[in-house]
Every structure is written in structure tokens, then in C-alpha cells.
Design a protein around this nucleic acid. Structure first.
Lengths: 241, 241
DNA sequence: TAGTGGTCTAGACCACTAC
DNA sequence: TAGTGGTCTAGACCACTAT
């Protein structure tokens, strides 16, 4: 029974062997692997085959590449475990994991919402919304890419406060006296688009944990629809039921 | 500013162009793409370059391969949206999405738990547990791979009932008179191991939505620790807070 | 400047599919 | 049997890194 499981090409066999070596502790975090040329000689094969094996090891996050320098054993720079509650904020979660949160506003615009956003936020026709694209960091590592929509009339001049900041909910509470509460969250696993991969500084195959949430306030009703994509290799999120 | 975003190799440019064609509706679901040889001629490049482009399109699930036959436009066979609640069962969720649930028991064993399982289930030392590996289907499509542990003394002869079945919780309710309630769920995004990819019949880069849950019963306490990996391309899960 | 990985060409043989 | 993708070899030129 030749199992499909093992995709038993030479390249995958080499990947397995090197994976075992890494997990067996032959290398330390940050160590350089032998060069492609050396691995070719060791395994009596072509560079193409070695590169296929290295691709697999990159995919499973065991190694990473520095152009012109070599392949290196990856370390796990962060391991963020996060319990989601109605009032959770990104910044609090990062702090409680022992890191320094920050955020970068990539884009802000005032626009007419898509049908999906309009329906989600229970908006009347032609009501404008703010749309922000935010990149969120833990220490200096980009951890999540966030797209978020808020009704414009509920937050006059919000764009002025959205410069550099660490907590959107902090701004909402302080400037507009609302108490944001998460209502639902929808989880999915995806891979990044080219632009998301670029912002998050990850390869195109790193899995992302996507969380869409609807946020409401007791007085103002639904005040935010937000979609965040977290690096799956660094984050996990717990939901209490 | 040459953006890193576009990884602007010829292969990625070709991938983008073909992606635009597919999303523009030039092909229908199930259509065959031109062969590698034809694409080589069209884009004036080598087969290697075309294969790099095809790899990208496979990764983002736009196309799939049939050995010896060609590249085909993928259809999305399922789109399961699932709201998680304390009493949710896999089988109910599949049914409510309009599909027929089934399950295959891949392995069953009686064993001593790992430290993690022992602590999670609040077990005394040397208390045995059942460990099951279950593959879950919607219609005929493998949708999730599931590993689950239950205290052995709470469910005598459980292994006898675990043959072919569609609902584990159905068995627990009927045979042991318990009311399983989910307490927490932890979400993460991962990629499959080789064996998981094989069981789920997916490429090694399909993202998986991993959900770990602790399940309790009012009388018996913590009765199950379960880890499921859902095909990220087919499922999304909503949690009410 | 020497060595590394990134990209690409040209060609080969194989396993599998469709006819 | 002809055509397809899967795997692999051999070799080239480039951009980047280390020194």
C-alpha cells in the first residue's frame, strides 16, 4: 500500500529527514542550514529537488530565508493566546500576553458602504460610513490586518483621531462615550492575498485566522463591523460559550 | 517604489493574469485550463515558470489538478456556515446546511492520557481514556478531522458503539444519559500535516480552522476534550458571545 | 568579491488519463 | 497511443549578503 499520505517524492523524503533533524534538536533557533549546494551534494540530487524540500519546510514554518544569506531555523517570536469576550480589545489582549501593542492606520476613507456592510450595520440607504484599514502590532511584529467600518454620523470627525493610536475602542469610549460590545464573531481560516502578505510580512502560504465581528453599543446600536486577519502561526483565540 | 507586495516575478504576473481571467468569468466551474505546453507558448516562457504560476492558483483554491488530465477550474462544493453553541453537534450543523452528515472512525484506543489531556479533563493519575480519531463528512466530502478523548470509566464499552455512526453526542445521550455542553472553544488557523492532508484529500497548503473544545455534563463534569480541524476553504464558524 | 538564494531555460523520463 | 501533469537534471544569470 503505497500511501498517498507521504507524497513520497525524493523532495518530500528530504524534507521529512531535515524536519526530523530540526525537531531532534540538531540545530538551534536562528542557526543557518547548510546551503542548497551542500544539500545537493549530501542528498545526491539537483538544486530543484532541494528547493522543493525547502519550500515544504518554509510552509510548515520550520525555516525561513534571508536572500543571499541562507536558510535559517525559525523561532516562534510570539505565541498570543487570547480569550474573546464582548468587551475584548486588541490592545488589552496584547498587553496581557506580555507584549506592547501598537497600530498603524494604512488607509481611512469616508464612503458609501457595500451592501453587506449596510445590511450588517442596519444602515439606511446612502448613509456614509468610515472605512479604516489598520495594521496591528505586538512589539514590533505585525500580527493582524484589520478592516473596519463605522457609521459616519455616529462618530463626527473620527478621522481626525485616527492617526497613530493603540486602541480604537479607547478613542470611541473617550471621545464619544460609547461602550463597545461584541455581539457575534465568525471564524474562518484563509491564506493571505498578496497585499495582506506584504503588510504582515509573511509568505503567501501562512494561514490566517479571520475573525469578523459585529460590535454594538447600548445607546447607539450597531456601531462597528470589523474584519481582522491574524497570523495563524502566532495567534489562537478562545471563546467562552 | 518597487512593491514587495507584487512579488513581481514573471510567474506571479502570469498567475495574476490567469486569476483575473478566471474571476472575470472566462471559464466555467469544472472547465479545463489550457495545458502547460500551451500556456508556455502563450506567455513565451518555460514550463517551470508556468508551474510556479499554477502552484499559486492551486494555493488560492482557484484551480485543482487531475494527473494526466489537466488543470480545472474549482467549484466550491460546499459552503458550511455554522453557529457554535454549548450544545452544537457536528451532525446537526451539517444537516442545517443542507448536507448529509456521516463519520468514519479511523482509530480507537484505550490509553493513558498525555499530561495536557489529563489536566484538561481534570483526571486523576493513571486514569485511562478513550482516544478516537474520526473523519467527518458532509455528503461525500471529507470536511473535518477530529481527535477526541473521553474518560474511560465514564463510558463503559463505548468502543463497541463507535463503529459507523453520524453523531457521537447522539450515542452519549442515548447510551449514557448525559447532556454534553461545550464550555470553551479555542480557534486557530493551521496547515495540515501530511496525514491530515491525506485523510481530508486536500493539498498540503489548504488552511485548516482548528477548534479545540472542552465538553462537560452537569452530572459527570468534564467528559470530553476534542480537537477538530475543518477545511478552511469550506467552513466558517460563528460564535455568539 | 565570493557565496547565497531567486528566477528561469531546456530537456528528460515517468505515471496517469482519455480516446 | 497521444497528451497531460509529476519529478528531476544541468546549467544560466540575477539580486542580495557577508567580509
Amino acid at each position: 500500500m503505497k500511501s498517498k499520505q507521504k507524497n513520497s517524492s525524493l523532495a518530500m523524503l528530504i524534507a521529512d529527514e531535515i524536519q526530523n533533524e530540526i525537531e531532534g534538536g540538531i540545530y538551534s533557533e536562528g542557526d543557518r542550514l547548510p546551503s542548497e549546494a551542500l544539500l545537493c551534494r549530501r542528498f545526491y540530487c539537483n538544486r530543484y529537488t532541494i528547493r522543493q524540500a525547502m519550500d515544504r519546510l518554509k510552509n510548515i514554518q520550520l525555516i525561513h530565508v534571508k536572500q543571499g544569506a541562507g536558510y535559517f531555523i525559525s523561532e516562534r517570536p510570539l505565541d498570543v493566546r487570547y480569550t474573546i469576550t464582548p468587551s475584548t480589545r486588541f490592545s488589552k489582549m496584547i498587553e496581557s500576553a506580555g507584549h506592547v501593542p501598537s497600530a498603524l492606520v494604512i488607509s481611512k476613507e469616508l464612503c458609501l458602504p457595500s451592501k453587506k456592510v449596510q445590511e450588517t450595520l442596519h444602515l439606511p440607504k446612502n448613509r456614509e460610513v468610515f472605512r479604516f484599514e489598520i495594521l496591528r502590532f505586538a512589539d514590533k511584529t505585525p500580527l493582524a490586518w484589520n478592516e473596519t467600518w463605522l457609521p459616519a454620523n455616529a462618530f463626527p470627525e473620527l478621522e481626525k483621531y485616527m492617526t497613530s493610536f493603540s486602541s480604537l475602542y479607547g478613542i470611541l469610549q473617550k471621545q464619544y462615550d460609547v461602550e463597545p460590545q461584541r455581539m457575534f464573531s465568525t471564524f474562518a481560516a484563509t491564506i493571505p492575498s498578496t497585499s495582506e502578505a506584504s503588510y504582515l510580512q509573511i509568505p503567501l502560504i501562512t494561514p490566517l485566522l479571520q475573525i469578523e465581528s459585529i460590535v454594538s453599543d447600548e445607546k447607539k446600536g450597531r456601531i462597528e463591523y470589523t474584519k481582522a486577519k491574524y497570523r495563524g502561526d502566532l495567534c489562537q483565540v478562545t471563546s467562552t460559550l
